[in-house]
Write a protein that binds this DNA or RNA. Structure first.
Lengths: 216, 216, 216, 216
DNA sequence: CATGAATGAGTTTTCATTCAT
DNA sequence: AATGAATGAAAACTCATTCAT
């Protein structure tokens, strides 16, 4: 990968929004694939129809770009969470449904999971700098909260588990499957994303949640 | 960080074992703290009583050093696993004990968890290059396997869950708590390593395993 | 030679063609003078009005620069060869003229001869990587070919010597005089480039060619 | 190639002469193959049954080793030259014989040719430092000298060509064939060492010499 | 004589960032 | 908004040579 700009001038676009979005998309893949330090501004620019200068124009610095990538990634997940609708199900079924939807979400957004891993490597210091993210609690917590409320009122759920713990339980399972896939497969020879075992893992998660939350 | 070698020549020792070990230890912290690309060979050398040159003498390259770090980290965990002794407990108690010991292990080896995260960012490509690690299944699997056998024979455990799934369940929980601590705390304001909640999480894990494995 | 860039920022020009050309010229001298491994990128940069960084910007690597130097050196020689005009002379005279022009060419392009020697030390492996050079037969061969044809038709030249052998004969003589000058002089005390003996050597070459090619 | 010493201690020899000779042999190949700057002391040591320390013990420095290599290479050639015996042939036949023996010599000592090329790259500065080589005129010159004398006395040879020019003529042809083999083959697609054309080149050389020296 | 370990100075290469147009 | 050229600082890596045993 040369440092020289080689983008074909021909198909350069003059649509700022689009240019910004394209940079962000490419940067997402690159950061997710290589980590913060491992990603190359040059490489990101090369995979775009713009030039490096534009990256600095829109995002100021590599850090700025990375933060924008992070913010967008969280936004996408948040809006997916906002679309969750499990109110029509009974509490235990709702929990299972929620867990399984999270399972699906994570599987279809591996870049997000990778970015979160990367951000944790850096002690979440970039995330902390964000003006929009920290504290902006996830919609999913409210969803879980409402289910727990309903379930407790109906006497079918335990009283001593809070929404954040439920979220942690579900996340840990779903995140591990994506985030640790490679070492797991290398060490144990089992691909956690093997389509043939997907249903098994999905059900297992639902079972775990239900078993743990159901009042005995 | 200067390029000049600044290590005090005075206290350099002529102890290869020690020199190698010291480099490896420092490198472990540095890679764990900064990722592969983010770690600096210069910085590692500076925190050692040797010089950068010795790193290349013993490990050939930055990659070689990283791989050695990875291999040592896995070895440490493996030998801890080998020391597990839960044979004297009844199957369900043994599973809980095992889960809780894993919980403890992970908590006291955050660098290992971070290295594994980092390695997954790179698709486990370094791990795959190792001649000792891949395929060398973990002792813990045998431990789990024996518990499952005993439990099934005694009729107290489910028949349809295999050792690797149990390991995955335990790992995902324990790993998440360490690996995703920072973003979790930044987003949700709850520190997963808060000593005051440690017992809660530890018990919760044991419960999860027991609830999932116990025959109904 | 320090690692610090010391080129005066004042007279840096923004003329890519010129920058590239200047690097190439300096590099030609340096490689010719010190060999591939002996040449220093730092030194080349220092003798330029640019910085080391620009060498990598334009040529990617030391090897890339060396190859560019080699390609340019061959191009220069090729275009000189293309300018050869000996069609108006009778075959034997044309051969002598050609030999003597080659003699002159080589004498005035010692760097080219040195680069060729260097490249041979490396088994021509860089040359082989070139996309423009290998196979691109030299114009001089056609010139020789046409003379031989004419000479055979006229019955004044031998039939059993081909153009490539003629070229080899001329080259070996002209190249040796330049390439082996130093050891020859050190061992035998005779400087092959002594201006006072130049005419002698030039005539001797012409004689050799004519004596060898003339039909008896 | 690692910097670490890995020579099997088992078969180390305690024969100084032999150790020295072995180092010299390996160094000859390495310098011939990679040039002075390109050769690695580490690599030379590794291909020997000794260690690097011995190289410095016997030869003081890389330069010292290189000079020893050069001196030995010239000595070998000199003693081959000393063995030349063409006194029993008539002058022209003797000259042809001499040329052809040189042709053979060079072909079977490519490393010598390469070393000479390398030394010329460095302006013969190492050779000049030698206490044994410079000035020590080659035996072959005397051989040529005696042939010329005999030939002139017999009236069969030209009067105006001296021994050193004859030597230069023969050398240039024989050296070029070996030294420039690689670029020649890459550019023109003809291997000058093709066994099938060996006799052709050998005869051609003899012809050249005879044609040039014979009195008309 | 022999050797594994160690070293300092240098050498190539990389990378985020900025400038002139 | 856009761009090819340029840059400084630093990063990885190398190599001849020496030391302690």
């Amino acid at each position: 990968m040369s440092t020289r700009e080689t983008a074909p001038a021909a198909d350069r676009v003059r649509d700022p929004q689009r240019t910004r979005a394209e940079i962000l998309d490419v940067a997402t893949s690159e950061f997710a694939a290589n980590g913060y330090a491992g990603a190359r501004v040059d490489e990101i620019a090369a995979k775009t129809r713009t030039t490096k200068r534009m990256i600095y124009y829109y995002f100021e610095s590599k850090q700025g770009l990375y933060l924008a990538v992070l913010e967008q990634a969280y936004s996408v997940i948040r809006s997916l969470e906002s679309g969750l609708d499990v109110e029509h199900l009974d509490p235990l079924a709702a929990l299972r449904e929620l867990a399984e939807l999270t399972f699906d979400h994570h599987e279809s957004h591996p870049d997000f999971i990778r970015l979160v891993s990367i951000e944790n490597i850096h002690g979440a210091k970039h995330l902390a700098q964000s003006e929009m993210l920290p504290g902006l609690s996830a919609p999913v917590l409210d969803v879980i909260g409402r289910i727990l409320e309903r379930g407790r009122a109906a006497g079918v759920l335990r009283e001593d588990v809070d929404a954040l713990d439920v979220h942690m339980l579900i996340s840990s399972y779903c995140v591990f499957r994506i985030a640790n896939r490679h070492t797991f497969s290398t060490i144990f020879g089992r691909d956690l994303l093997d389509p043939g075992r997907r249903e098994h893992y999905r059900t297992m998660l639902g079972d775990l949640v239900v078993e743990h939350l159901a009042r005995r």
